[in-house]
Amino acid sequence: MPGERPTVSVIIPAYNAAKTLGTVLESVYAQTLAPLEVVVVDDRSTDDSRTVAGRFPVVLVESPVNRGVSAARNLGARHSRGEILFYLDSDVALAPDALANAVDLLLSDPGTGCVHGIYDPEPLYDDGPVERYRALHAHFWRRRSVGVVGTAIFALAAVPRAVFDDVGPFDENLRDSEDVEYSDRLGAAYRIRMTETVVGRHDDVDRLGPMLSEQFRRSQLLVPVAAVERRGGGGLKANRPAGALAAALVPGTVPLALLSPWLLTVPAACLLWFALVDPGLARFAVRRRGVGFLPWFLLAHFLVHLALVSGALVGAVRWLVDPGFGPSVRRRKDRTTTGASAGAPAGTSKGPSGGSTAGTARARRRSAGE
Rank of each mutant, 00 (worst) to 15 (best):
T32W: 10
D184H: 08
P210K: 03
V254P: 08
A363I: 12
A18K: 10
F297I: 02
T348F: 14
S341Y: 12
E178W: 07
A162N: 13
A246M: 09
R332A: 11
P110L: 04
D184C: 09
S353V: 15
G280L: 10
V38S: 01
R288M: 15
E214D: 04
K333N: 01
A72I: 03
D109S: 12
R230I: 07
S260G: 06
F302G: 09
V28F: 02
E370P: 01
V10W: 00
D104P: 06
V39I: 02
Y125K: 15
P64F: 06
E172M: 13
A227H: 09
T337Y: 09
L258W: 11
G343I: 04
I12T: 08
A248L: 05
P169A: 14
V159F: 04
S63K: 06
S356N: 13
N173C: 03
G369T: 03
V41I: 00
H202M: 06
P57Q: 07
F140I: 04
E370R: 10
V167P: 10
N239Q: 11
A100R: 15
A275S: 09
P345R: 12
V304I: 02
V24E: 02
R73T: 08
E131K: 02
V40E: 00
G347F: 07
L222N: 11
T357K: 07
N16Q: 15
T357F: 14
